[in-house]
Write a protein that binds this DNA or RNA. Sequence first.
DNA 1: TAATCATTATAAACCGGTTTAGCAAATTAA
DNA 2: TTAATTTGCTAAACCGGTTTATAATGATTA
Lengths: 338, 338
Amino acid sequence: MKNKLSINDIAKALQVSKTTISFILNGKAEEKRISKDLTERVIKFIKENDFRPNQLAKSLSTGKTFTIGLMVEKISDYFFAQIAYHVEELANKSGYKIIYCSTENDTQKTKELIKLFAERHVDGFIITPPVGIEKEIKDLMQNDIPVVLFDRFFTDFNTSYVVMDNYESTYKAINYLITTKCANIAFIELESDQNQMTERKRGYVNAMNENRLTPNILRIPFSNDKKQTILQITSFLADNIQLDALFFATNYLTMHGIKAIHNRGLKIPHDISIVAFDDHDFFDIYTPSITAVAQPIQEMAQQLINILLNDISSRKRTIQQKVVPAKLILRDSTIRKI
Amino acid sequence: MKNKLSINDIAKALQVSKTTISFILNGKAEEKRISKDLTERVIKFIKENDFRPNQLAKSLSTGKTFTIGLMVEKISDYFFAQIAYHVEELANKSGYKIIYCSTENDTQKTKELIKLFAERHVDGFIITPPVGIEKEIKDLMQNDIPVVLFDRFFTDFNTSYVVMDNYESTYKAINYLITTKCANIAFIELESDQNQMTERKRGYVNAMNENRLTPNILRIPFSNDKKQTILQITSFLADNIQLDALFFATNYLTMHGIKAIHNRGLKIPHDISIVAFDDHDFFDIYTPSITAVAQPIQEMAQQLINILLNDISSRKRTIQQKVVPAKLILRDSTIRKI
DNA sequence: TAATCATTATAAACCGGTTTAGCAAATTAA
DNA sequence: TTAATTTGCTAAACCGGTTTATAATGATTA
């Protein structure tokens, strides 16, 4: 139908050069000494015809797309979905749009996705990196494209990132459990050597050791489905009847762990206490409510956007690293034992 | 660093016209009768230098961006996050990327966002429309931009959409509750006149009337926060002590309702049965597990992408409307009363 | 009165692709 | 042997903006 107006059409209609229109559109009327009169005529025309410049053309000539690539492990996971929400909100305020994808923590897939985003000229990346994409990240940085990692990072090379203090928050949570008279505390984690996971484990092991307690770790394979996970935890509980508490390293594990505990006929917190890493709406609703190490999601999103937009707009790239503190939200699942 | 290669650079390096390169890149070498020899030389060069055409330039000249605009009420909500995940997965297979935003169900915000997406030339829209954006949708369609609504639609004008059979699924769920000997069944809903909500209510009211039971509806204002909602449901329960069952029209209401039931000291399903609209991981884990009307999320995503991509690639626009059946997942919260 | 400066506006190149129209040489048909 | 066709390739316009360099006019200054 109504074919979209272009800057050329306006130039023709108003008998003015497109250069002039462009200057006015970009608020350079004064600077470029376009007369008040003409400026107003053009603005009037633009308003009346609801002219919106073609962003593709703009991007092609300026090299800026006002688009951020958000690459998370899985967009539907509670934590990432929350991050996606806040990141979009904040980005939107500065005129940025978000293009996203789920990496599934798959190295090859992620490499390809980075290329796809790069050829669309996103202005910057937010990435939860799987293992083995150091080179691709390096390439981006060398091509002067801002990147902020989050949730995890590479210990062996220097990038901007926003992560939680995985070590400290786990360490504190375990110590808290110990103050509630728990001694046999197991750590249930996903098989993963990524640093967010290893740090959580380090926090657990250190807290245990410092209290002369023996660490007891259950590793769940990545390939497990829900049923398998529940079964595995159930049999772990059967093999370790003396357990006082479980610390789950991710909120999905907590979900499955609760089911397993239920299967074994154990009562929380009477028979066993639990702490979840990552909060979830559900933990507050569940009876008993579940104590959780809560990532400050909104703050993380804010940091991500701050670092990224700052990096995008500044001439020279900087490395910024934020470790944000978590909050241990005490609920009924860790009530002090008698 | 390494400045990105352009088609012009290749043309220069190989002493060949950019037209030729473009033809070869687009698989038109044979059609355009480029010699095998030259074709191979070009392809070799492209591979060796890992050349990736600038998608912006491509989009500018072809008018296609291979980008879909996904506008949902709130990307972090369980249902929408799931949809986002599957939509991206499926779109990705066809080379499409997703740009998203949360409308917050705000009419004005949504209007603006539609314009922002349109000026970025998305190839198509997936939208959960708030009220009052009929004109904007119409405009898109008149401008020949494919749009598929989902979760809800406008009864008074014709668009493509993918929705659930809100009426039928609620009707069936209520009838099921009645077979479990519930008679005093209340319907807890958000104040909303959007059709997905009114249809659910219609299903409830009809099922009740047909069984000569009296409908009892609690409307929760949109402006409520979590605490207010819990309080409101709690006092509703206090005022209606004879209730046998509650039907919650959204899964967030269920969350809050469970808390309210707990506050009142009622046991599910012994004292009161509950059914949730929209499933949630949590409903399966909760004790008792919660019966829910489950939207077939993956199927909806598939339908959305099918309709949209089909519309994008076909010359003439078509209207396609899919009403997908929900599944009533029976769990412990609706165990038959004695 | 000529030189200089401000003011106002524009032509043209550019970003990096696609596509139309057409040319020259080689081959085939008449 | 000449005309017609096929083969192989490209110049140039286009998509819709931005930006640099410069022109034309009128006002000031020396």
